[in-house]
Design a protein around this nucleic acid. Structure first.
Ligand code: MN
Ligand code: MN
Ligand code: ZN
Ligand code: ZN
Lengths: 148, 148
DNA sequence: TCGATATTGATAATCGTTGTCAATAGAAAA
DNA sequence: TTTTCTATTGACAACGATTATCAATATCGA
């Protein structure tokens, strides 16, 4: 019988190993939660969920694990109107977030082309533009149906 | 002799009046700082600057005044990589921010047209898109020169 | 299996923000 | 101008979220 553990999770644990970190029970539980969720979770939410898998988990360990996952580029902080302390699996390549205002579901999209706009703003302001943040908010199909 | 007080500041104070708030010394000092700055300032930074004008100012009053200015739509919170608790005079109409990574200077720009992109993402994902956040980061002309 | 040490959870400390309250000051009325 | 009402103030305490400390424990290479 082969294990059905999602590959993202295994990849994250392997990356922790490779970087000299130990793979422990508490870390497994945190990774399992954050790697497989489609909504941004704050440290306490991660704690509540992960401790169902690893009951003696401490909140402090959640903070420390999130810190390491962020340093490894595996998760990233999501900025939202109601708070900026929730995390999601990091974008792969050049992607931006689309967030559902109803259920909090998050998806990445790619294919934005802002070169034109950026060129125009650069010319107008004299700035050399190096980065951009783009985030879309709306209602997913499920929430659209629910709210009519 | 006419006063040379910047009009934004007077507008803000008038708006406080109109909404039943009293115009006090402490509030004047906070408004003067935030209304005339081109960089996002957090509550403590506002406190340090404003108390040069009104030495007996308390930090708590800064928090309370910022809260009211935000409620009146005169200032807005700015999200940045290194923190999301700094404020700027609010955008007028549909505008987005361009921030200098060197000196922190902030400018608004308008004229972005994301309808095309948004339509494409909506079609692809099934989301009904209701809002967007866009923010550009770069170097202003002065910082570009300074950093070569 | 063993041992060095990274990691853990409990606890305390810290930081930014918000609540409490008596004293004060704004502004409308007298 | 003076009076009066009460919104506002600053000092202080309280709070919640995050970070530091430390002895006990668990990981993983030897
Ligand atoms: Mn982009
Ligand atoms: Mn726009
Ligand atoms: Zn939804
Ligand atoms: Zn600059």
């Amino acid at each position: 019988m082969t294990t059905s553990t999602p590959p993202i999770q295994e990849h994250w644990l392997a990356l922790l190993q490779e970087n000299g970190y130990r793979v422990t029970g508490p870390r497994r539980s945190v990774v399992e939660i954050v790697a497989n969720h489609h909504r941004a979770l704050n440290p306490y939410q991660v704690f509540e969920l992960a401790r169902q898998r690893y009951p003696r988990l401490g909140l402090v360990t959640v903070y420390r694990t999130l810190e390491k996952l962020e340093a490894l580029g595996l998760i990233e902080r999501v900025h939202q109107p109601h708070g900026c302390h929730a995390y999601l699996p990091a974008a792969v390549g050049h992607q931006h977030l689309l967030l559902c205002q109803g259920c909090g579901n998050a998806e990445y999209f790619s294919g934005d082309d802002l070169d034109d706009l950026i060129g125009r703003i650069a010319a107008r302001t004299g700035y050399q533009i190096k980065e951009h943040w783009l985030q879309l908010f709306g209602l997913c199909t499920a929430c659209r149906a629910g709210a009519q």
